[in-house]
Design a protein around this nucleic acid. Structure first.
Lengths: 156, 156
DNA sequence: ACATAAAACTTTAAGCTTGAAATATCTGAC
DNA sequence: GTCAGATATTTCAAGCTTAAAGTTTTATGT
């Protein structure tokens, strides 16, 4: 999947394959760098950061299934990550009266403060890691990826 | 990390952050789809596919450390995946006379045939999943990502 | 009301992933 | 030759990830 230096043979459809390979390598490269920095600087992980980022945008809280859908990961996965965040005091689960199957998950005060700090650093890192991409290219690329996303969601 | 529907606030540097988020969501979406199809259609996994793809391009074999570097994953990780592929008869390790620390890893005949089949399907999937991206956009996007990569490798 | 289905979540087993420590081998300085 | 350091790989512990199976609660049809 993460094919590299050697070129993909040319032919019909190869352009898209090449695009996918580059896309994957770019995101893995950046992801690896972020993972390392999160670990070194804040002793945390990317999945934890992802969950906290989602919750930060939803002060009223989120259901587990919302988190799962939003983060594009399985529901069982979210359970584990949230468990750990709860045990660290960064996240809280609140049982709901309306539906006792569900629980609202939200950042604690400590979690909110912690995330704000990390997010500021994170944004700086992205600026640095993507520094060579011009603002204009960034916007154009974003536009293409956005249209990919809309097409994707409308598929089937 | 995988922020979604809600827009990233505007401001300096936010364009790159937005780009990163879109990039990550696009690759995770495609990855999830490929993972599912590899499982359903060929009872295999993405990491196995990655390793086999790398070895397919190197008929003479690769060192473990080459695989690790090439796939952008840790060396310990590669050990486990190759172990499993070996136990399935798809990959073979060959001790080298010159340096007994290393071993050349290569696809077996069965592994080669198996990969060829899967790779053909894989290419078709990518063509389908990225079908809405025009060939021209695909080339332009690839170009931008390639220049990101060169910049990255030249950093530090 | 009751059975049945659907929904939300957790648990489980297997595999992936990392960073760090351990092992084995090789290279170079002396 | 030998010993220190470098190199290649494996092992290990902890955590992430998925798909599938299980649990509890809610909704629905009759």
């Amino acid at each position: 999947m993460v094919a590299g230096p050697l070129p993909v043979p040319s032919g019909p459809g190869k352009d898209r394959l090449r695009l996918w390979i580059r896309l994957l390598r770019a995101s893995r490269t950046i992801e690896a760098e972020l993972r390392e920095r999160l670990k070194k600087e804040f002793d945390t992980t990317l999945p934890r950061f992802d969950v906290m980022a989602a919750l930060y945008r939803a002060p009223e809280g989120m259901l587990m299934s919302d988190l799962s859908r939003f983060l594009l990961v399985s529901n069982g996965n979210v359970t584990g990550i949230v468990d750990r965040l709860v045990s660290e005091g960064l996240v809280a689960r609140a049982r709901r009266n309306g539906d006792r199957r569900t629980s609202m998950v939200r950042l604690t005060e400590e979690g909110t403060k912690s995330f704000a700090t990390i997010a500021a650093a994170h944004e700086g890192w992205i600026g640095e890691l993507l520094g060579k991409v011009s603002e204009e290219d960034a916007r154009r690329l974003t536009g293409m990826l956005t249209s990919f996303r809309s097409n994707w969601e409308g598929r089937e």
